[in-house]
């Protein structure tokens, strides 16, 4: 009897502990997506809130596909989606190229050093993201540090246009998201690397061969996880293109932000968000799957 009551208490306790986050996320994370979806079928009106309700006064359903037809026919949105995917993909590749050797070097460094080296990768992540982008504005600007240095050295006669273009956006994304690439790569490299590598080398394998046959395949989960952690948020990035990008830097996060805050067309912004969600749903599923496998 006593043990029965105890297990009931335990079940109740677990229900509460698991129930609180499920309820919170259900209300404040999941339900809002349904509202975005619903709003994307509304018409914009000048009212508060600025869109038509789903049910009109007569009780009928008011839904329109206008926002989606507009979206598909407007070259601005199409090029913004493509631009976002392109910029995110190239930035992810750059992060991989820059981050892999870093993770490899940390994983191979002597044990006492590793924690410190890892901390130095994590630390920038703790300091403000907005301010780190702002710091680059001070470096890249027309009167910025790089330009004045080059001018003083006599290497250039006129300041270079280092900012307000796509290259500056790549730089900003790599700078911001590089830790997200290095950490999962380090996690897999640290686990498998040393013993297997030494065994292969002892057996006479050439270093390049060891890398392509052992290190690289074993680190693939880290490559996938890191790439998703960079690629998905980069697609929807707003701050970096807004501060470092040029007027012709088309990214969908910026288009959505402008549609919402400048044109005040909430239904169209909701449609843009819905399509953006469709764009990232595939990489999102790859990421979730990898996470589920890593934490069974």
């Amino acid at each position: 009897m006593n043990s029965l009551r105890r297990s009931a208490a335990l079940a109740g306790f677990r229900l509460v502990i698991a129930g609180i986050p499920i309820l919170w996320l259900g209300l404040f994370f999941l339900a809002p997506f349904l509202l975005v979806f619903r709003t994307s079928f509304a018409d914009p009106v000048i009212a508060q809130p600025p869109f038509t309700p789903l049910f009109d006064a007569a009780g009928g359903i008011h839904a329109t596909l206008d926002n989606y037809t507009l979206l598909l026919n407007d070259s601005l949105f199409l090029s913004s989606y493509l631009g976002s995917v392109r910029i995110a993909a190239i930035s992810t590749l750059l992060c991989l190229i820059a981050g892999y050797p870093m993770a490899y070097a940390i994983a191979r460094s002597p044990q006492p050093w590793r924690t410190l080296l890892l901390l130095l990768v994590i630390l920038p992540f703790w300091s403000s993201f907005l301010l780190r982008i702002y710091a680059w504005m001070g470096l890249l600007g027309t009167h910025g540090v790089i330009n004045s240095l080059l001018l003083d050295l006599g290497l250039i006669q006129r300041p270079l246009a280092l900012m307000y273009n796509d290259a500056a956006v790549y730089l900003g994304i790599v700078y911001t998201y590089l830790p997200f690439m290095v950490l999962p790569l380090y996690a897999v490299l640290e686990k498998h690397e040393i013993a297997l590598r030494e065994a292969a080398l002892d057996l006479g394998a050439r270093p390049l061969r060891v890398f392509t046959d052992i290190t690289l395949p074993l680190s693939m989960p880290g490559v996938v996880a890191g790439s998703m952690l960079v690629f998905i948020p980069a697609i929807g990035e707003f701050v970096i293109p807004a501060l470092l990008g040029g007027l012709d830097t088309r990214m969908i996060g910026r288009a959505l932000f402008d549609e919402f805050f400048i044109n005040r067309d909430w239904p169209l912004a909701a449609a843009v968000a819905t399509v953006l969600l469709l764009v990232i749903v595939l990489p999102l599923m790859v990421f979730q799957r990898g996470q589920a496998r890593a934490h069974p």
């Binding site: 986050p21 996320l25 994370f29 959505l256």
Partner: peptide
């Protein structure tokens, strides 16, 4: 719960904000 915990980590902020 697993899905709802992992998704906000990578969800673009503009979507979370708008929703």
């Amino acid at each position: 719960l697993t899905g709802m915990v992992a998704a906000p980590l990578v969800m673009p902020e503009i979507i979370t904000g708008l929703s």
